[in-house]
């Protein structure tokens, strides 16, 4: 039987969830025996090369590119997991949800005292992904199968969840593992 395939992505996140994933330390050797990696910032694969079993999503969606990537993951992953507060509820980027986008951009690029008068321009290069009106949790855009809270979720939580998914076993978590911070 072939090994389960894992893919990961960081959308509007800080890569902290990926770093926490790497905090499983020496267990990563065990993991490599159990799974194979496809598209992920860890191996820098840009495109999916095969159907994936487990997709781990860090970050919510703050721009159109995030949405495209998330949808691309949903199409290619059998199980999709929201990892961390940003994926689950928008997290810190979603603090801008309380302020209209126009105000945010004007404050940052037009009115801020640190912007030189000649630089006052809302970035409009075609290469930049368009910002969304607010930051969206991933499960408001595609169906998400599981959620791992935390900022970041601890390495132990990620490990326990992966093991449960790989071995198709129910996830039983000790109290200290579920944290939102």
């Amino acid at each position: 039987m072939s090994k389960p395939v894992i893919a990961t992505a960081s959308l509007a996140g800080c890569f902290g969830c990926h770093m926490s994933f790497l905090d499983i330390d020496e267990r990563i050797l065990e993991l490599i025996e159990l799974v194979e990696f496809d598209k992920s910032p860890i191996d820098d694969l840009k495109k999916f090369t095969r159907p994936v079993d487990i997709g781990l999503i860090e970050g919510g969606c703050c721009n159109a590119e995030n949405v495209e990537v998330l949808r691309y993951f949903r199409e290619n992953c059998r199980i999709l997991v929201s990892v961390g507060e940003c994926a689950i509820m928008g997290g810190l980027p979603a603090m801008r949800n309380l302020i209209p986008l126009k105000e945010c951009l004007e404050e940052a690029y037009l009115n801020s005292p640190t912007v030189a008068p000649e630089d006052r321009l809302i970035p409009n290069d075609e290469e930049l992904p368009l910002l969304l009106n607010r930051v969206y949790p991933c499960h408001e855009i595609v169906k998400i199968d599981y959620f791992l809270p935390g900022c970041p979720p601890s390495a132990d939580l990620i490990w326990e969840a992966l093991m449960a998914l790989i071995h198709s076993q129910p996830l039983k978590l000790d109290y200290p593992l579920i944290k939102y911070d």
Binding site: M89, H139, F147, I178
Partner: peptide
């Protein structure tokens, strides 16, 4: 929420302005 092991609320976030 920890005690009830809430991983994600069943309701949509409203993000009210406060």
């Amino acid at each position: 929420a920890y005690r009830y092991q809430i991983m994600v609320p069943q309701f949509p976030y409203l993000f009210p302005k406060r």
